[in-house]
Design a protein around this nucleic acid. Structure first.
Length: 1049
RNA sequence: GGGCCCGUAGCUUAGCCAGGUUGAGCGCACGGCUGAUAACCGUGAGGUCACGCGUUCAAAUCGCGUCGGGCCCA
């Protein structure tokens, strides 16, 4: 027997049941051979802790996979782990107290790699346990891990394919560079926030013109030594001005529109315009590098002016170009065959190319020195500070710099159109995630820099010959072993670094020392999870993925990286459908962060409420693709809702146990003839619900599912059906009416447990085990092995559902009217009158239900437009009476008030006026002189419902009163039974002393009824009784003192 | 500067794709129920559906624009 809903205890029990029976594997085994559903788990990074977002993510995945499995799909569901990359390197470096790559080299790359591996594996185990608590059923025993040899091969193989398709290239590119990690980082690994930097205006002396300068502006003074050119906008006009500062003139060139602001910034007191220059004329200028003395190489470079569209009408309109330190600069440099001058090394320090003075300085620290030198050379026009967005390494938060380095690229930009074409064939939930958001990202796709100068990653399988330049990409471990002529235990660094391969030219090829960008790891998950290329069969049978789902940040992440990797390898998208979900934010819509202190841990929610409640909450809180604003209050509500479900479930159990409910009695088909209309109604509703939920699930409208189910549980099951069915459970013996109710409840609960199984797997399993397995050991061992319920069309009766919803409305309106009339529901009323406004009301077979719920003796449904007999109220319209009757007006008003309102109305309706007789006098009252209002009589309060009005006749009769008092007495005795902790079936002895004779007489009429209801085998009702019993209490019933004593019989 | 999403009651939100009386929950106030009970139910107050223009017999819903918030890009 079930007690209170204790989610944690229940979930622990179910978890151990699943473990004991190995339920997960049985479920998957059951569906082998079914239609294939290939799901690829977006691998969480092994940080060691899951957060609310990852919990939501796995709950969505799990719910969908459980649903698919119940629909007989053979589900492929290997969990995945993303285990390489800088974040782990940084953690390990921290634990070892390392500051740079040199420390790693000294420590030993092999030992460092071992540490990284250990770390990642430990974190993976911790996180697996956390996911399991949530009830996430993925294949945790055999997950794919990016650090496994078979996984490394999948990336190698992809790169080899890319190379075969001529999409791999090595080139000098300006990349985002982290000087601390000493590696290139991807655009997506750059974090932006505001940083205060220098803002300087610099004067570049024009060659061949005395005291004349082009003015540029920059926030990175350290890039000035690498300046090679100036860019101007081809559509701007430029001005040459003579400007005076402290009496000294200078000739300055800048965009015409910006002259005033630049000179103001430079604190010039006066100026005169010498002439204007077009962009073409600007391009004829050459200038001298302002720090040519410091940077010897600059003496050899010719500095010119070039046109570029990206030049904005900001600052000076002349842009400093350092092709070695900027993306646009680099492209401009390529176009005009400028020197890609980059006097900065991988450590972020100037190289010897920067000249003696700067060599060895860290660039961010060189800013002030460069400024001082410019100042000294009188080349600085102005300097200030500026807060602007600046990029940082996502891992170590070091400000990134741009430097030109030699890297490996995938030529993704060539595939843009093909990619757009591919994603248009993918089904996106919601649709705009693909057609708008992702398409926009792809339109801006650039070539993918896949090389990183680090250790803990998949080594690039590129070998090249230093002698002849011959290059080979190795696709598998077997291929490498064959070429190397020996076994290789681990494909990571440093083991592969030592392998030299024979070059056709006779030389020895060496491996390119880089590792893959970690995004490339997860990018190959769709085939790595199938163990391709080491095994081919699964790949042929399953690939590409049927479904993936991740947060909207993965638009530029995993959705994209997977697409890119699959395009270069297979020329097609690796997934067929994608559900994009939102972020988890706090209740105010802010990101959860340590600094705000608003982080909510999933295990905290599980500890307080349970996994099912967390699951049902996150699924229902809002549409999956919108951000989830986490609110404890809403979790609390979800908890309340499931608790009500639990109470509905356990409501009937004690009775069923009492009545020896068994498999035979659970068989609904035996009671078809005994089903009441309300039974047929709830059976119709549960089948309609199954239809709705199935439809919503097919569109991944997860929030609607939760709402549909919640509404059914609260409104239909708990607030209505259970209330209706209660009295039937009190019937003694095997009455078919009672058994039909049991069988109906049973059917509804069993259906519901299956319908909810994907979303609240623990609760559903518990109910299933008790209700189904408890009666039939031959039933499927788990609810998750049951088929998804199918709506039974024969049970669905729309008309009945409609009538019932009318009955519910009328019943509520009835309560409302009772409240107005001051008549409690416990007191029966003689009649309820339903007065529809226009549309007829057809209650079908449900009049009995309505009578019961409204506690009314009679239900009358009037034809549309008809009302019960109303009281009428006449109010004189003085404005009209006065002018006609003048001095007699008062008498007229008196006569009107004395008149029979029904008679007045009858005459006015018939002839437009009424004749009043007042003593000797008669008055004619026109319709204008009186306002006639219809009022429900005090004994007939009314309330509205959607089709009209509901009137409740609250007139009391002795019969009604005696019933009312009987119920009052019953209620109090029941209360006392409970206080004594009696069981439902216990018999009692009761004595009731009522101090008022008339009321005693009323109660005596119902003596037998009361005794039966409270199970009193010995029952006394009287005046002045001497009370005996274990429990004696005084009650006030409608102002009368009633003393009750009860005891066990 | 560009792309996408969002803006509905004090708060959290449904409805929007497919136009037809804005619907819930929380909180607040009042009442009821009492063999599901450390529960539960009803009623009430509370809305310029961000704003403007357009399409339409009819707009929270469709279109255009503005403002505000978020994410991403430049």
């Amino acid at each position: 027997m079930a007690g209170q809903y204790n989610a944690r205890e229940l979930e622990n029990q179910i978890r151990s049941l699943w473990e004991r029976d190995d339920t997960y594997h049985k479920v998957r085994q059951l569906r082998v051979g079914g239609k294939k559903f290939f799901f690829v788990d977006g691998p969480p990074y092994t940080t060691g802790r899951i957060h609310l977002g990852t919990a939501w993510n796995k709950v969505i995945k799990d719910s969908i996979l459980r649903y698919k499995s119940m629909n007989c799909f053979a589900v492929k569901d290997r969990a995945g782990w993303d285990m390489h990359g800088l974040p782990i390197e940084v953690k390990v470096e921290e634990s070892l107290g390392f500051k740079s790559k040199k420390d790693i080299e000294t420590y030993g790359v092999d030992r460092f790699i071992d540490r990284c591996k250990e770390f990642a594996l430990r974190q993976k185990d911790d996180m697996t346990a956390q996911f399991k608590i949530l009830g996430a059923w993925l294949d945790w025993d055999d997950p794919y891990m990016t650090l496994k040899n078979e996984y490394l091969e999948a990336a190698w193989w992809a790169l080899k394919k890319a190379h075969e398709h001529n999409l791999l290239e090595r080139g000098l590119r300006v990349v985002n560079w982290c000087p601390r990690c000493q590696t290139a980082i991807a655009d997506s690994e750059v974090e932006y926030w505001d940083e205060t930097d220098y803002s300087i205006y610099v004067k570049f002396p024009v060659l061949g013109e005395e005291n004349t300068f082009i003015v540029i502006w920059t926030t990175t003074p350290w890039t000035i030594p690498a300046n090679v050119a100036v860019a101007v906008n081809p559509s701007f006009q430029y001005s040459k001005v003579r400007a005076w500062k402290d009496g000294r003139p200078e000739i300055l060139i800048m965009a015409s529109d910006l002259v005033e602001s630049v000179l103001k910034t430079g604190r010039y007191q006066d100026y005169e315009l010498l002439g204007v220059l077009s962009a073409e004329q600007m391009q004829e200028l050459h200038y001298e590098h302002p720090l040519g003395d410091m940077v010897p190489r600059q003496k050899e470079i010719v500095h010119g002016v070039y046109a570029a569209d990206f030049v904005a009408a900001e600052n000076t309109g002349c842009v400093h170009i350092a092709p070695g330190h900027g993306l646009e600069d680099y492209e401009l440099g390529l176009n005009h065959h400028l020197e890609i001058f980059c006097p900065v090394g991988e450590d972020g320090r100037y190289t010897e190319q920067a000249g003696e003075k700067y060599q060895g300085l860290y660039v961010k620290e060189a800013d002030s020195l460069v400024i001082a030198d410019l100042e000294e050379k009188e080349r600085l026009l102005a300097q200030g500070r500026l807060a602007h967005r600046y990029g940082h390494c996502w891992r170590c938060k070091t400000p990134i710099i741009f430097i030109a380095t030699s890297q490996w690229f995938l030529r993704i930009s060539d595939l843009r159109d093909k990619m757009l074409d591919e994603i248009s064939r993918v089904t996106w939930y919601p649709e705009w995630a693909g057609s708008a958001r992702f398409a926009d990202w792809i339109n801006n796709a650039r070539d993918w820099c896949i090389s990183r100068q680090r250790y803990w990653g998949i080594p690039l399988p590129i070998w090249s010959c230093p002698t002849c330049g011959h290059l080979e990409v190795i696709g598998t471990a077997a291929e490498l072993e064959e070429r190397a002529g020996r076994k290789i235990a681990d494909l990571h660094r440093p083991e592969v670094d030592s392998i030299l391969l024979d070059c056709p030219c006779g030389g020895k090829m060496k491996r390119s020392p880089d590792v893959f960008d970690v995004w490339f790891d997860s990018a190959v998950a769709s085939w790595a999870t199938l163990r391709f290329p080491s095994q081919e069969k699964d790949f042929e049978e399953w690939w590409p993925a049927d479904f993936i789902t991740e947060g909207h940040d993965q638009t530029r992440g995993w959705f994209y990286s997977q697409l890119g990797a699959a395009m270069v390898s297979f020329g097609r998208a690796p997934y067929k459908s994608v559900l994009m979900h939102g972020f988890t934010l706090d209740d105010q819509g802010r990101k959860m962060s340590k600094s705000i202190g608003n982080i909510v841990q999933p295990e905290e929610v599980v500890a307080k409420f349970g996994a099912d409640i967390l699951r049902f909450y996150v699924l229902g809180a809002n549409a999956p693709w919108e951000d989830l604003h986490f609110s404890w209050e809403s979790v609390e509500n979800t908890s309340r809702m499931l608790n009500i479900f639990w109470n509905a479930y356990r409501f009937a159990l004690p009775y069923m146990v009492l009545d020896g409910f068994d498999a035979e009695k659970a068989d609904l088909s035996r009671y078809e003839k005994s089903l009441r209309p309300e039974d047929r109604w709830i059976l119709s509703r549960i089948n309609s619900l199954i239809g709705e939920v199935t439809e919503e699930m097919e569109a991944y409208q997860l929030h609607r599912i939760v709402r549909s189910i919640s509404e059914f549980i609260l409104e239909d099951l708990s607030r209505w059906y259970i209330q209706l069915v209660r009295p039937r459970t009190w019937i003694e013996q095997d009455d078919p009416d009672k058994l039909a109710a049991y069988a109906t409840i049973y059917e509804v609960l069993v259906k519901l447990s299956r319908l909810m199984a994907p979303f609240t797997p623990f609760l559903s399993e518990s109910i299933y085990q008790n209700l189904v397995r408890g009666l039939d050991r031959a039933a499927a061992p788990s609810v998750h092995m049951c088929p998804w319920p199918v709506a039974d069309g024969a049970r669905i009766d729309r008309k009945l559902e409609e009538s019932m919803s009318l009955v519910r409305e009328i019943s509520m309106a009835g309560s409302n009217a009772r409240q107005k009339g001051g008549r409690k529901l416990r007191w029966p009323v003689s009649e309820i009158v339903i007065s529809p406004a226009k549309e007829a009301v057809d209650l079908g077979d449900l009049v009995g239900v309505l009578k019961g719920q409204t506690n009314a003796k009679k239900i009358t449904v009037l034809p549309p437009g008809e009302k019960p007999k109303m009281d009428l109220e006449l109010s004189p319209v003085h404005k009209k009476i006065g002018p006609v009757y003048k001095g007699e007006a008062k008498a007229v008003v008196a006569a009107l008030q004395a008149a029979d309102p029904f008679e007045v109305k009858k005459q006015i309706d018939a002839i437009g006026e009424a004749h009043l007789i007042s003593g000797p006098k008669g008055y004619t009252i026109t319709s204008e002189m009186v306002q006639i209002r219809e009022l429900p009589p005090e004994s007939l309060p009314a309330a509205e419902f959607s089709r009209g009005l509901v009137y409740v006749d609250i007139t009391l009769t002795p019969e009604l009163e005696s019933e009312g008092y009987a119920r009052e007495i019953i209620r109090r005795i029941q209360d006392m039974r409970k206080e004594m902790d009696l069981k439902v079936e216990d018999q009692i002895r009761a004595e009731v002393d009522i101090e008022s004779k008339p009321i005693l007489d009323l109660a005596l009429l119902k003596k037998e009824h009361i005794a039966g209801e409270v199970r009193a085998s010995d029952f006394q009702l009287g005046l002045g009784l001497e009370l005996r019993g274990r429990l004696i209490k005084d009650w006030d019933i409608e102002g009368v003192c009633v003393r009750i004593a009860i005891d066990r019989a």
